[in-house]
């Protein structure tokens, strides 16, 4: 199997998985269904992790309720543009190495890291 074929197959699998997950998270509400995994960090420590509420946020987002999604997990909403930019950068890594370095600059990564840590601390203090 050639490199391009393997990449294409991987992409296809990824798209199928994302679509199936999308349908599941659209149809079922994680706050009332027992089907979804609960946060291990929250159960063990009693503290919320940066990702807590993201399943409910995705369900709300897929049903068009952006405000509710933001309330469940603000970090998830803020991360979506970052993820889009990073995915684009990843696709341009070999073709445009300069752009890749600029989008993966230490400053931007630090910014994201500080944002995550702040979010983690603040949401446990203010119960966001």
């Amino acid at each position: 199997m050639t490199r391009t074929m393997r990449r294409g197959l991987l992409l296809l699998v990824a798209i199928v998985v994302v679509l199936v997950m999308g349908v599941v998270y659209y149809a079922l509400d994680p706050s009332s269904s027992g089907f979804f995994p609960k946060c291990a960090f929250l159960e063990f420590t009693g503290y919320k992790c940066p990702g807590c509420g993201s399943q409910r946020a995705i369900h709300a987002l897929l049903n068009g309720d952006v405000v509710a999604a933001f309330k469940y997990n603000a970090l998830l909403l803020i991360s979506i543009p970052w993820i889009a930019i990073c995915l684009y950068a990843e696709s341009q890594r070999v073709r445009n190495p300069k752009l890749y370095l600029r989008l993966n600059s230490q400053l931007l990564i630090w910014l994201f890291l500080i944002m995550v840590l702040l979010w983690w601390v603040l949401r446990n203090i203010f119960n966001w």
Partner: peptide, 20 residues
């Protein structure tokens, strides 16, 4: 070219997974 930073997957894991 720069090796992949894998930043996308790190961000996705941070936002979606329960362990830090």
């Amino acid at each position: 070219p720069c090796p992949s930073t894998n930043l996308v997957w790190a961000i996705v894991a941070t936002v979606l997974c329960c362990v830090p």
